[in-house]
Design a protein around this nucleic acid. Sequence first.
DNA 1: GCGACAG
DNA 2: ATCTTGTCGC
Length: 232
Amino acid sequence: MKEGADIRAGESIKWPEGVAEARRLQEELSKRVRLAPLRKRPVTVAGVDASFTADKTVAVITVFEYETLRPLEEAHCVLETSFPYLPGYLSFREGPAILCAAQRLGFMPDVLIFDGQGIAHPRRLGIASHMGLLLGRPSIGCAKSRLVGEYREPPPEKGAESPLYLDGRVAAAVLRTRAGVKPVFVSAGHLITLREAVEVVLHCAVRYRLPEPLRAADGLSKRLRRALQQRS
DNA sequence: GCGACAG
DNA sequence: ATCTTGTCGC
């Protein structure tokens, strides 16, 4: 068990060496996820995403003003990739670089939107829940496709949604952010409710399928990746 | 054994 | 996620 820099006072971040260890960590951490209502209307909202080269992970966090969706700040971090992509274990692959980028921000955003699942996960600890917990901030999972759960296709209108069930419970909302476009899978990550998560995603998805902060983070991380590859 | 499977 | 150009459709 390796240890990284402290994100939250008094507690060090642990990164597992293998899948068995990762799974145990998820089962342990998921007990600490809290889906409580936001304590205040967010003033800032961030998008978090990552890109990859053959051996490196490029994580990007873009921060916007919630009300106007004007860009405020962005931070990124490039780290050696140390965990493979395995469905259900995405946070162990992208997590280290994401936390590194988070520490480079001038201030912590009021809510962070991740490119992946929140609690709509086999052990209820998708990347949004995992990172939200470690950062101690409200987080939302906004995935482009399904990991687990069952659902019915939502109506084609913008704003239409249908529940995604997992273990007989609603774990996410399959949400249409643009009319006639493939829906996104929104789930609560940490310190937020599903209803609020949907509200935030719809508020931020004004022009494209993905909420503005996520789309910006995606674009920037890909540009940074290309810059890295040309330089080697 | 076979199919599913965030990014 | 990444490898890659043009092309079909609104």
